[in-house]
């Protein structure tokens, strides 16, 4: 469930990045790469788990599924927070810089 949630987040972010390309004002490429990196790593984790559990991997307990969904959503939220920090620090549109200069004046 965590893998699935992250894969969907990666797909949505990639579509949004493609829609805005070649402009990169929102640093969506960075967010997409972050989610794809996590998705690929969880895919390896899922393969390792499948080798261990075999078909039982596809029939998880409802409580485990709910916990994994909750974790997946939290991971997506954390990714968004990291992206937001990168966006504000790098400030590609110069919005934060302009606001700070305005306050100084």
């Amino acid at each position: 469930m965590t893998l699935l949630t992250t894969v969907f987040a990666a797909i949505i972010t990639t579509v949004l990045w493609y829609k805005n390309a070649p402009k990169n004002e929102m640093k969506l490429g960075t967010l997409a790469l972050m989610y794809w990196g996590a998705s690929l790593m969880w895919m390896v984790d899922a393969i390792a788990e499948f080798i261990e559990l075999k078909s039982a991997y596809f029939t998880p307990e409802p409580m485990d599924m709910l916990n994994d969904l909750f974790l997946g959503l939290s991971v997506v939220a954390l990714g968004l927070i990291i992206w937001l920090i990168i966006l504000i620090v790098k400030d590609p549109k110069g919005v934060v810089r302009a606001a700070l200069l305005k306050n100084k004046n």
């Binding site: 960075t30 790469l33 972050m34 990196g37 996590a38 991971v75």
Partner: peptide, 14 residues
């Protein structure tokens, strides 16, 4: 770098 930092960071949270 973005793939690796993003992936390992989010996995560390897990």
């Amino acid at each position: 770098g973005n793939l690796l930092w993003g992936g390992s960071g989010l996995l560390a949270f897990e």
